[in-house]
């Protein structure tokens, strides 16, 4: 009998050992769309960092004579805006504020929302009900309306726009975090951990966070594009960045009057917003499948 047991366990060679993130990277590398999206985002970030070296002209220098030049004008490769400022330089510098406004609220909301959601999901019971119903009050507002209302109430300005966007995203992330945590909490491996003597804190730190942060992270990545669009919207309404700062949403706003004169020019900031948000969304999709260990 012992011989049978000994003999029959011989299997093929064990798979090569790899770490978790090595595996994620290996799977992500096989996904050309996610790689392309990642490269676009990398290029945008580099563009934002090295804006002063890349921009051909000063993004603040106005020219009354050369206003609203079309794309391809000599000296203005992407034309000039309604105050005669170089579009290309403004688009390059605009990446700084736009990316910052897109990423920061999501990062803040990721921290706060995950903490709230995991707490609600793991503790359960009336704590869960109290937290989640409060969250639902915020969730009931359409995000654009909530962002506009909060920004309006706090007063126009860059910092207040960041705060209001963070408040908009916290309930969304908390709901996802709560849903995943509730699922994970009832898994066998959590009970197995308890049966091997793990306390509540260890279970949350090791088993809940280990399984929950991935999905929340992926969801949050997809919110970056939403955050950028909302930030642009706030700027467009005059609640976010103020002129003459270059920011894609604000530029879209100021150029809207020129849409019949120079439609291509007026669309350029929108094109940048579109490229950036779609890149973040595609990267989030790629990460979602790459972070699934079972693939």
């Amino acid at each position: 009998m012992a011989v049978l047991a000994q003999h029959s366990v011989v299997e093929g060679p064990a798979p090569k050992a790899t770490g978790y993130w090595t595996g994620v990277w290996r799977r992500l590398r096989r996904d050309p769309v996610a790689i392309a999206a990642g490269l676009v985002i990398l290029a945008l970030i580099l563009m934002a960092i090295f804006a002063p070296y890349l921009a051909p002209a000063d993004p603040y220098r106005t020219s009354t004579l050369r206003r609203l030049r079309p794309v391809g004008t000599a000296g203005y490769p992407l034309g000039s805006d309604e105050l005669g400022r170089d579009m290309l330089s403004r688009l390059i510098f605009g990446a700084r504020l736009s990316l910052f406004m897109g990423i920061t609220p999501v990062v803040l909301a990721f921290g706060i929302g995950s903490a709230i959601g995991v707490l609600a999901g793991y503790v359960g019971g009336w704590v869960n009900t109290a937290i989640m119903r409060t969250i639902d009050v915020f969730y009931a507002f359409p995000s654009v309306l909530l962002a506009v209302a909060l920004s309006g109430a706090l007063g126009a300005g860059f910092g207040n726009a960041l705060v209001s966007l963070t408040v908009v995203f916290v309930p969304q992330i908390a709901r996802v975090a709560e849903a995943v945590t509730t699922q994970v909490r009832s898994r066998d491996y959590v009970e197995a951990a308890r049966a091997s003597g793990a306390g509540g804190f260890t279970i949350v730190r090791v088993h809940v966070l280990g399984n929950v942060l991935g999905p929340i992270f992926v969801y949050s990545t997809s919110l970056i594009s939403v955050s950028m669009i909302l930030a642009s919207g706030l700027s467009f309404l005059g609640l976010g960045t103020r002129p003459p700062e270059p920011e894609w949403g604000l530029m879209l706003n100021t150029l809207r009057t020129a849409i019949y004169v120079q439609p291509w020019l007026a669309a350029l900031p929108g094109v940048m917003i579109f490229i950036t948000s779609i890149a973040f969304n595609l990267l989030a999709d790629g990460l979602r499948s790459a972070m699934d260990v079972k693939q």
């Binding site: 898994r187 066998d188 491996y189 197995a192 049966a195 003597g197 306390g199 090791v206 280990g210 399984n211």
Partner: peptide, 29 residues
């Protein structure tokens, strides 16, 4: 007590579950 229980679980008594794929945490080796 909770403290004694945590020491007891796993060290004095251990459990084997029905479905090891579900009882092992998927994100750790």
């Amino acid at each position: 007590s909770q403290r004694a229980l945590a020491d007891y679980r796993g060290a004095t008594v251990a459990m084997i579950f029905q479905e090891p794929l579900l009882a092992l945490d998927p994100v750790y080796t």
